[in-house]
Design a protein around this nucleic acid. Structure first.
Lengths: 344, 344
DNA sequence: TTGAAAGCGGTACCAT
DNA sequence: ATGGTACCGCTTTCAA
C-alpha cells in the first residue's frame, strides 16, 4: 500500500518529457497543431509510464464543458425508466459523455434539488422525466444556457425539446383491439391524472376508443386512484363486483397492473376466460405470467437514444430555435390475456 | 428565450454585496469564520436575487474533493443491481454526494474504461460490481488514493473493502430446506463459475448441502452454462429428461431461472407437483408467478447502504488500515414452488 | 514546431 | 470581522 504517490499532472509529464505543458496538452487531445513525431511519441510514452490521467475538473473549468450529462428520473427501481436511462447512456457514452443520475421519487422538491445540483456540477445538458411540479426551476436552468430534454412526459407550454410516445393513440388502439375481439363493457384503471399528462392521455385515448365504437363510458368502469399494488387490487375488485361486470380491463400503470393480476387470481378467475386484460409498458413478468399478458409496449431504448440525439444537437448548437417534440409509436404485444368475451 | 445572461460568479455576488469573494465563500459554505449578521444576510439576499449557484468544478479543483462517487455495475437493466444502486444513492445523497453511474456489461474492457473515466472526473470514491477482469486497474486507481468498495463480488486477495452476502451458506440452507421437504435428487443450474466468486460459492454451498445430507452429487445433475434464458430452458430440459429425473431444481441466476420456469410450463409440468424449484434473488415476478416461487432473497437496499458506509469511512479517513469484508445474511422466502416430492 | 502566461471560478491562508 | 491573493490543473491565445 503506497499512498499519495501524488497524482501526476500535466506539468509532471511536461517536465519528464522535456517539453511545455501546452505541447503535452496538444498532443494528448489530438488537436490540430502540428507536432514532430518524436516529440509526440516521447510525450505519449511518458504519459503512459506515469499512468497519467488528465484532471477532467480542471479541463472542464477552463474549457467550460464537462462532457457530462445529468439524468433525472422518478425512480430507477422502475425497469421502464431504467431501460430509458440505459438507452440514453449507451448513446451518450458512444459520444464521450458520462451521466450523473438522480431520482426525484416523483417529488418536485427532490427534482428541484437535483436540478440545482446538476447546474452546480456544470453538466452540459439535462434529460428529465419531470414530476411537472417545478417547471419554474426547469425554465431557470434552461435560461442559464443548459440544454434540457424532457422524456416520457413533455409539456407543450414550455418550449422544451421532448421525446414521448403517443399515449392517446396507444390507448385508443388497445381499446380498438378489445372491441374487435367482441368486448363491449371495457373498464380502465388509471393513476391520478392531474399533472401527469401521460396518464391523462391514456385515459383520453380510452374514452376516444369507446366513443369510436359507439360504446358507453360509465363512471363506474373508470377507476382512477394513486398508483400502488394495493390500489390495483382494490380497483379490480370493485370492477369485478359490478353488477355489469366489465368484459375487459385495461390498466395504464405497472403497479396497478400487478394488483389487478393478483386480484383476478385471488378470486379464482382466469384470463381471458372470465375477463380480458391489457396493460401498459412491457415488464419482464408480462411474458412470464401464464397466460402471457397483452401489453402496450414502448420503444424504450429508442426513447433514450432519441433523447440523446436531441440533447446533443442543442449542446453542439447544430440545432437551434424552437423546441422539437418527438412522438414515437407504441406496439401492441398480443399475448394470451385477451380473448373473446365470455358468452352470456 | 434569453440566452447567455452569463452565469453569475462569486465575484458578481461579492461586488453586488460590496464585500470580498472570501467573505461570500465563507458565508455560503457556513464555515467557522465569524461574520456580522448584516453582512451575512446581505450576501444571502444578493445570492438569491442573482440566482447564484456555486461552480462545483472550480470548488472541487481547489478543495480536491468533488463530493461525487462513481458507481459501476454490470448493468442497470438487472433490477437486482438497480436496487443496490438505489440503496447506495439514497445513502450517498443524504450525505451530500452525487453519483456517476456506469455499466460494464460484464466486460473487463468497459470496466477499465469506466474506472479511468471516474478517475479523470476526480470522484471521491468508487463502488464497483467487478467483472473480475481488471483487478490491475482497480489496484492502480486505489493506489492513487481513490477509496474503492467492491459490492456483490469481492476478492479476498485484493485487500479492498467489500460488501456481499454469504452465498455459500445461502445455497446450503436452500438445499437443506429441500432435503427437509423430503427431496433426495436435487439438481442445480448455475452460470459459469470461473472468475465469478458469487456463482462458485453458490455451487459450493449446494455441494455442501448435499454432503451434509449424505446425498450424491452426480455430474449429470449439475448444469453449468453461460447465463441466458435459452440456456435455462436447455438445462431444465436436460434435467427433466434424465432417467432419474431430479425432484427439485435450484437455479442460481435470474436469467437461467426464467428459462427454467418457461421450460417447466412448456412441458405441461407443475410446480411443486412434478418438480420443486428454488431460485436466487427475489425479482418482482417471483411472487407474481403462480404458484409463487421460493427464492433466496438478498438484503438489497442494505447492501447499498453498507457499501456507502464503508466508502464514507475511507473518504473521511475515519477508517484506515486493512480492508473490511461485510457479509450479510440472506433470507429464504418460502412460496408455493417447493413442496414434498412426488411419490414414486 | 514549441513555449510563456493569462485565466476558468472558487478556496484558504495571511493580513489588517 | 473582513480583504487580498496565490493557487488547484488544464486550455488557449500570442509570441518566438
Amino acid at each position: 500500500m503506497k499512498p499519495n504517490k501524488s497524482v501526476p499532472t500535466i506539468q509532471d509529464v511536461a517536465r519528464e518529457a522535456g517539453v511545455s505543458p501546452s505541447t503535452v496538452s496538444n498532443v494528448l487531445n489530438q488537436r490540430s497543431r502540428q507536432t514532430s513525431k518524436e516529440t509526440r511519441e516521447r510525450i505519449l510514452e511518458v504519459a503512459r509510464q506515469l499512468n497519467y490521467q488528465p484532471n477532467a475538473m480542471a479541463a472542464a473549468l477552463r474549457r467550460r464543458s464537462t462532457r457530462t450529462i445529468g439524468v433525472i428520473v422518478t425512480t430507477i427501481l422502475n425497469p421502464f425508466y431504467t431501460a430509458i436511462v440505459r438507452g440514453f447512456q449507451d448513446a451518450a457514452r458512444q459520444h464521450g459523455y458520462s451521466t450523473i443520475l438522480g431520482n426525484s421519487d416523483d417529488d418536485p422538491g427532490q427534482e428541484r434539488e437535483m436540478l440545482n445540483t446538476l447546474r452546480a456540477k456544470q453538466v452540459d445538458g439535462i434529460v428529465i422525466v419531470t414530476t411537472g411540479g417545478c417547471h419554474d426551476t426547469i425554465q431557470q436552468v434552461r435560461d442559464l444556457g443548459v440544454p434540457i430534454v424532457m422524456v416520457d412526459r413533455g409539456d407543450p407550454g414550455l418550449n422544451i425539446d421532448s421525446v414521448a410516445v403517443d399515449n392517446t393513440r396507444a390507448a385508443e388502439a388497445a381499446v380498438g383491439y378489445l372491441v374487435g375481439l367482441g368486448h363491449r363493457r371495457i373498464a380502465i384503471i388509471s393513476g391520478l391524472t392531474s399533472g401527469v399528462p401521460t396518464r391523462a392521455h391514456r385515459l383520453q385515448g380510452y374514452l376516444r376508443g369507446l366513443q369510436a365504437a359507439g360504446l358507453d363510458a360509465p363512471e363506474s368502469s373508470q377507476q382512477i386512484m394513486s398508483t400502488s399494488i394495493e390500489n390495483g387490487s382494490l380497483a379490480a375488485g370493485r370492477l369485478l363486483d359490478l353488477p355489469d361486470r366489465p368484459m375487459a380491463i385495461m390498466a395504464t400503470n405497472n403497479l396497478l397492473s400487478i394488483g389487478v393480476v393478483q386480484e383476478i387470481r385471488r378470486r379464482g378467475l382466469q384470463m381471458p376466460r372470465d375477463v380480458s386484460f391489457v396493460m401498459f409498458d412491457d415488464p419482464e413478468w408480462a411474458c412470464l405470467h401464464s397466460p402471457g399478458i397483452t401489453t402496450v409496449a414502448q420503444p424504450i431504448q429508442e426513447i433514450g437514444a432519441r433523447a440523446f440525439a436531441l440533447l446533443e444537437g442543442r449542446i453542439q448548437k447544430t440545432r437551434t430555435g424552437d423546441a422539437e417534440a418527438v412522438v414515437l409509436p407504441t406496439t401492441l404485444v398480443m399475448r394470451g390475456s385477451c380473448g373473446a368475451p365470455p358468452k352470456l
